[in-house]
């Protein structure tokens, strides 16, 4: 079904929480190296869709393929899958008992079984990459929210993921801190990382996205290039949403 070069293929995805159907027949394709920004009002199901991609939520129906492997197949090793899918959360979710460096090292050591030296080398590299090389020995509580989120990105990157998922990565940040995080995401995109970004940052979508998807009520309403979606929206609901935001 999936074409050559496909990173993520979501087919007929549905998800119910009890009687509440939050995703209805969602179909999304993400190519390798592509940056897809998912927009939509809260409750539109965009975060749930993202969490289904690494099975933090278990889909009720449909299929999801990552690099042509069906992850919704019960036989799939979920932990193995997750190694290749990095995720950044709205609430950072750094491990508070570990320093920034140790946060980045932990999964490398335990999951990838890297040696301490290698894990530390990579961790320092990734921390440098997000601009926090000098904060390696700080605990999360000693870092600002923006810094914490950048550590969280470094932590995900250290696992050398093939795709990165960003779940409203800047929503919990004070406005003046958003910049730093977006810059990191921007440069990641430029390096060719495949990214699925759920966000409210329109400017980021316009500047960075290869494709924009607008979701509402659990379905994909519209998708296209930033220019198509922002400047020539076809659907009324998209226009309404963009009108509210802008």
């Amino acid at each position: 079904m999936s074409e050559h070069g496909s990173m993520i293929s979501i087919q007929h995805l549905s998800k119910c929480f009890g009687d509440n159907e939050v995703l209805k027949d969602v179909n999304i394709e993400v190519a390798k190296g592509e940056v897809v920004v998912v927009l939509g009002p809260s409750g539109s199901g965009k975060s749930t869709m993202l969490r289904c991609i690494n099975l933090l939520e278990k889909p009720t129906g449909g299929h999801i393929f990552i690099e042509d492997k069906e992850i919704t197949d019960p036989k799939t090793d979920v932990n193995k899958l997750r190694e290749h899918v990095g995720m950044v959360f709205q609430q950072f979710n750094l491990f508070p008992q570990l320093t920034a460096l140790k946060n980045v090292m932990l999964a490398q050591r335990k999951v990838l079984k890297r040696s301490k030296e290698e894990a530390e080398r990579i961790a320092r590299f990734e921390l440098d990459r997000v601009g926090l090389g000098d904060r390696a020995d700080y605990f999360p509580a000693q870092l600002s929210g923006g810094q914490q989120q950048r550590v969280a990105i470094a932590r995900a990157l250290a696992m050398e993921p093939h795709v990165m998922l960003f779940d409203e990565a800047t929503s919990a940040l004070d406005p003046e801190l958003v910049r730093g995080v977006l810059d990191v995401m921007h440069s990641l995109a430029e390096e060719g990382m495949t990214m699925v970004v759920v966000t409210h940052e329109m400017q980021f979508a316009k500047d960075v996205a290869d494709r924009v998807i607008f979701m509402e009520g659990g379905v994909v309403v519209e998708e296209g290039t930033p220019d198509e979606v922002f400047n020539h929206p076809k659907h009324e609901r998209t226009k309404n949403f963009l009108g509210h935001i802008q």
Binding site: E83, V85, F89, F95, A107, V111
Partner: peptide
């Protein structure tokens, strides 16, 4: 312990 801690760990591939 907040649920986010479980999710973060699991999303890194930890068992």
């Amino acid at each position: 312990v907040p649920n986010g801690q479980f999710e973060a760990a699991r999303s890194l591939g930890m068992t």
